[in-house]
Computed example of a mutant assay.
Amino acid sequence: MEEFWQLYQNEILSTLICLAILFVTRLVSIQTIKRIGRISDLNKLRTKLIVKYVVIGHSLIFIAALLLIWGVNIKDLGLILSSVFAIIGVALFASWSILSNVTAGVILFFSFPFKIGDRIRIMDKDLDSSEDYTIEDIKAYHLHLRKRNGELITYPNNLMLQKAVTVLNPLEEDGEGTEAL
């Protein structure tokens, strides 16, 4: 054990420092996201989803730091990672919309132009532009929109960033008082 400590003392100390930094930054990030969610009166499930994304991101950064600290041979690791990333790249290219919808969900969380319960009107040629929708839920990939007649529509997050969306005044039922985003 003494030999192991003397041989890898710098790596062990660097790993412990990296672990401490990971815990502190993760704690600060999670508390900040929860505070934003609480101040903005956002859905708790939506806040938990963003926290999960941050935890995964922190974990990937920590693993990369450990690989650098322990001096893993980049050439050997590069061959394995290039094969894995080639497969992942093909999968993401085939389903690019999933990635764009998740990214749009994160952007919608931090910009919070609308929230659950808001009445909106979407200027989309595929939807009736005069129709009002109530936001029932905001998921990682899509929103649940409810028409006045009770019909439920799922609408992709990335289209909410691409299309013009009007948040309607809740006091005006006929859509006269609107507030543009």
Rank of each mutant, 00 (worst) to 15 (best):
V102D: 08
L143N: 07
R121N: 04
N10P: 14
S59E: 04
A86V: 09
L45R: 14
V54I: 14
L81W: 12
I69A: 04
L145E: 02
A140T: 11
L13M: 01
G78Y: 01
E179R: 07
Q6F: 10
S82R: 12
L92G: 01
S95D: 15
T15W: 04
V51Y: 11
G177Y: 14
L145K: 01
S97P: 08
I87Y: 14
A180G: 11
R38G: 04
E2W: 04
E179T: 10
D126M: 03
E172D: 15
R35E: 03
L45S: 14
K163L: 02
E151A: 08
M160F: 03
S129K: 13
G117W: 01
I39V: 14
T154E: 02
A86K: 13
L143E: 05
I98L: 12
D132A: 13
V167L: 01
E172V: 08
V28T: 11
K115N: 06
G37R: 03
K52W: 15
G78W: 04
G78P: 07
Y53V: 15
R46H: 01
S40H: 10
I122C: 01
D41N: 15
V102R: 13
S14Y: 06
I69G: 02
Y8V: 07
A180F: 13
S59R: 02
E151M: 07
G89S: 00
K44H: 12
V55K: 10
L16W: 01
E131N: 04
L145W: 06
I56P: 09
R35D: 05
L49V: 05
R119A: 06
K115M: 00
E179F: 10
G150E: 04
T25R: 00
E176G: 12
I98K: 09
P113Y: 00
L92E: 08
I50C: 02
A180C: 09
T154M: 05
I116S: 06
E172K: 10
H144N: 10
I107R: 03
V51W: 05
G37A: 00
D126Y: 10
W70K: 02
I87E: 07
N73D: 13
L27S: 15
G117K: 05
E3Y: 10
D132Y: 11
G177A: 07
V84P: 08
F23Y: 11
L161P: 05
A180K: 14
I122S: 01
H58N: 09
H142R: 11
R121P: 07
P156D: 05
S82G: 14
I69P: 03
W70G: 06
I39D: 11
I135P: 01
F23G: 11
Q6P: 07
G89E: 03
